[in-house]
Amino acid sequence: MSEAAIPLRRAPAAARRRPRHVALAGLALSAPAIALMALFLIGPVGAVIGMSLTDYQLGARSWSFIGLDNYSALAGDAVFWKSLGNTLLYAAIVVPASFALGLGVALLIEAGRSFRAFYRAVFFVPVMATLIAMAISWEFMLHAQFGLINLTLISLGFAPQAWLANPDLALPTLAVIGIWQAFGFNMVLFLAGLVSIPRPLYDAAAMDGADGAFERFRLVTWPMLGPVSMFVLVISAIRSFQVFDTVHVLTKGGPSKATEVLLYSMYAEGFEFFRSGVAAAIATVFLVIVLALTLLKARAADRRVHYS
């Protein structure tokens, strides 16, 4: 019964007063989730912020509260700035490229009827294949002497490159792997967005005289993809900030800190040097960046939704 139209009246079932045993059942059923959340999620978030204000080192007998010293130390640490800068640079390469490739491939797939599932699957394989294993395959393809990429360059008359050993090339090279891995995911999101654009809008655009492919894109596709695009941008950015696997396996942050990224710094501080307080400070910075990106998305989403 659709009685919602009249304001008095039927609250949704869950909002209604129920016999007491239902409230008890609700608490009992969510108790395990609440306990585990407190232990493994919310508690640790508090702990990481708290720890960032201490000089705690794993295994140390004592520790003390040192206020914002960890943060001021980070602020004066060139390696930290390098790490933050590298992370931003990595994101600045991966986000636009994986956005553009994801959208381009989605448009191409959607432009025809044949082999859609086939292409979709092809571009999606890197998303779910174990990145560590694929990084090893990439490493061999990038091998200075016997790698497929240098051999190709040589056969085309170009000079071979030391992709991962050259400080200028190492980060962009990792970014290419990141793009390769990520854009299939964006493609799937764009495909879903494209499918949900109502056909009659294209018919209306055609009646209005916008019948060229570019005109249709500008008038209908792009605006209607607005929310999806925003979403893809933020998701890609958050994922780029989480880059770690390829760095850890292929470069260890080198050469000469050229691929030192935020999570790698945190890992090294926390689990190689066991300076838990410093690691917690980096983790807090990381957390703040990720949460800020999400807030940005939420605010933008309010403004840019074109669905009714």
Binding site: G43, P44, V48, M51, G270, A280, V290
Partner: peptide, 8 residues
């Protein structure tokens, strides 16, 4: 992000 709480 799960990495942020790895230390604690």
């Amino acid at each position: 992000p799960p990495q942020a709480i790895a230390v604690p």
